[in-house]
């Protein structure tokens, strides 16, 4: 199993993702430069956090036209595992692989802190090792993480079970107080209708060792690894 981590000019979470796979998971991983025309045979592709292309225009708006994105989109459409953390989530919504948009945080401040997210389902490639309703302690670091979509599309997401992670308190209540950015329905992460593309604002790749505050993020990587080694049909989303 090999992970690929895309580096855009302005990415700053690419080494975190790389280190999470290589040193915490002890799995193969390689960097994929944004101008590359080849995914190097990777089984899962990570779009990392950061400020791709300086976040000019809108976060993710320019990155979506980087040459490698054609190949990422093709890979995702053929069922490949694609994960966007933070800025990577913004790139995924801009590129149309995930629905909706990430607006400026409702309080305008850049948020950098540990928060809790609740796992809404476990029959996906990203949460197979979690328990339903499990609460994970994961850091966030973003200024534009306020998930927004049309009311009817949010309803569709909820009905399809595409909301994978929700901001919650330590006991799992998705309360308004636990919502760090104003996201509709406390949405912290969603998957595509087919279930193979994940976008989330929190950073599991920065929570892979207890010494840095939490190792809960490993569960996302372990789930993906298990899925890629023996793919299970994704629950009907």
């Amino acid at each position: 199993m090999k992970f690929g981590v895309v580096t855009f000019p302005g990415s700053n979470g690419d080494y975190d993702s790389y280190a999470a796979v290589r040193f915490a998971m002890k799995e193969k991983v390689e960097f994929l430069w944004h101008k590359s025309e080849d995914l190097q045979g990777c089984d899962a592709v990570i779009l990392p956090g950061g400020f791709a292309h300086g976040d000019y225009l809108r976060a993710g708006a320019i990155a979506r036209f980087s040459p490698i994105m054609k190949h990422v989109i093709k890979f995702a459409k053929s069922g490949g595992i694609v994960i966007g953390f933070c800025n990577g989530f913004q790139v995924l919504t801009e590129s149309g692989l995930l629905p909706g948009a990430l607006l400026r945080n409702n309080h305008l401040r850049f948020n950098s802190k540990f928060i809790y997210i609740r796992v809404e389902r476990t029959d996906t490639p990203f949460t197979g090792v979690c328990r339903k309703g499990e609460v994970l302690k994961i850091p966030i670091a973003h200024g534009e993480g306020n998930y927004y979509n049309f009311e009817s599309d949010v309803r569709k997401l909820e009905d399809n079970g595409q909301v994978l992670f929700r901001y919650a308190d330590a006991s799992g209540n998705a309360s308004a107080a636990a919502n760090p950015n104003g996201s509709i329905n406390n949405i912290a992460g969603i998957v595509s209708a087919e279930g193979n593309v994940l976008g989330m604002m929190p950073h599991p790749e920065r929570a892979v060792e207890d010494i840095i505050g939490s190792s809960d993020g490993l569960k996302v990587f372990e789930s993906v690894l298990n899925y890629c080694i023996s793919p299970k049909p994704v629950g009907r989303l």
Binding site: L57, A101, Y148
Partner: peptide, 8 residues
């Protein structure tokens, strides 16, 4: 395609 995001 680029200057505006039709979602928002």
């Amino acid at each position: 395609k680029l200057l505006a995001n039709p979602v928002i």
